[in-house]
């Protein structure tokens, strides 16, 4: 368990962490999710000891490490840009932590070879980082971090510098690795899809504060506020409320729309809109609409519904919200 209590960190007048408290259960894979400048990296680096808190405490597995340097915190850290030791071979990179700890050579060698096999770099022992691809370098960095048997594994946007295909492969690989190794893992990302894909817990950060912590389903279906809802998944503004695009239904007949809408509690009502564009997205169809108020929003409906409606651009249509779960009141400050 990692416990951060009342953490504060200022850079000049900018509050990177503004009274942040967070518990990260042992064995979990937690994502710190937020836009840039939200404080997620600062929080991770503070847990690692790479950043010193102005106030607040950090404990790892019951040990207060607030005043300990990184090398005495029992952590493994993976950087966005790999931080590979360029003058060392892959084997020496991975062995670094063990060499520092003066472990017997044979033991180190065995462990390094095992780890390289786990991360799929067996046979690359004598290469230099410059001879590896980005994805390979990051897997080497992971092996290096795991070599010292850390109590917690901290990853700072580990896939941010990789291209899309490698990124999705690596995060699924990380998920499987975590299921095997079970080391408490904290991952920083600004990519909500990545957080939903990999993590079993997500903490959403914004402006140096934690907005909500929970499992991905809860965060998606019961967001605590507009920010969380807007950051996790897409949203549409419908009659002064935030609605998920797939929770919007379109009706040809206004009376039908009104009748169905009456069954939904706290609904934003039926909105008359004009179809601006119909975009097929494979299984679903995105319908871009303009309300009579001039406000633009998008609805996501199934292909079958779209075929039944026979939507054409420029036609009038009636939109309503179907689900209540992801309909919340708009904070006036956020309403456009």
């Amino acid at each position: 368990m990692i416990t951060v209590t009342s953490a504060r960190k200022n850079y000049g007048s900018f509050a990177a962490l503004d009274d942040v408290s967070l518990d990260i259960p042992s064995g979990s894979l937690t994502a710190l999710l937020g836009p840039s400048g939200s404080g997620k990296s600062t929080l991770l680096r503070s847990i690692a000891g790479l950043e010193e808190l102005d106030s607040g405490t950090v404990t790892i597995e019951g040990r207060d490490v607030t005043d300990e340097p990184p090398q005495r915190r029992g952590i493994g850290f993976v950087f966005q840009h790999y931080a590979a030791f360029k003058h060392m071979t892959v084997r020496d990179n991975v062995a670094f932590g063990l060499t520092i700890r003066k472990r017997p050579k044979a033991e180190t060698r065995k462990k390094v070879d095992e780890l390289l096999e786990i991360v799929g770099l067996d046979g690359f022992q004598h290469r230099y980082p410059a001879q590896l691809s980005g994805g390979q370098r990051q897997r080497m960095a992971l092996a290096r971090a795991l070599a010292v048997d850390p109590q917690v594994l901290l990853l700072d946007e580990p896939f941010g510098a990789l291209d899309a295909k490698v990124r999705t492969d690596l995060r699924q690989w990380l998920r499987r690795l975590h299921d095997e190794v079970h080391v408490t893992t904290v991952l920083v990302t600004h990519d909500q899809e990545e957080a939903l894909d990999v993590a079993d817990r997500i903490a959403v950060l914004n402006k140096g504060r934690i907005e909500q912590v929970g499992d991905p389903v809860t965060l998606y279906e019961r967001p605590a506020n507009d920010f969380v809802m807007g950051f996790l998944g897409s949203v549409a503004h419908l009659g002064g409320q935030l609605v998920r695009p797939h929770d919007i239904a379109l009706e040809r007949d206004r009376a039908t729309a009104l009748a169905l809408d009456a069954k939904v509690v706290d609904s934003p009502g039926v909105i008359d809109a004009v179809v601006e564009r119909v975009v097929p997205l494979g299984f679903e169809v995105r319908v871009e609409l303009r309300a009579e108020s001039g406000e633009r929003f998008a609805a996501q409906i199934t292909r079958r519904d779209a075929a039944e409606l026979q939507l054409r651009e420029g036609e009038k249509i009636h939109a309503r919200a179907t689900g209540r779960s992801s309909v919340i009141d708009v904070d006036p400050a956020l309403a456009i």
Binding site: A48, G49, L50, P69, P70, Q71, R73, I75, G76, F77, F79, H81, A83, A84, F85, K86, H87, F96, G97, I100, R101, A141, R144, A145, A147, V148
Partner: peptide, 25 residues
Amino acid sequence: QEQEQAASTLGANGWQTFWRITLPA
């Protein structure tokens, strides 16, 4: 500083980081 920070998270103290990471770089 990332390589040096990586070394410190792997258990190296300042002196070890200088000799093993900074100086070779």
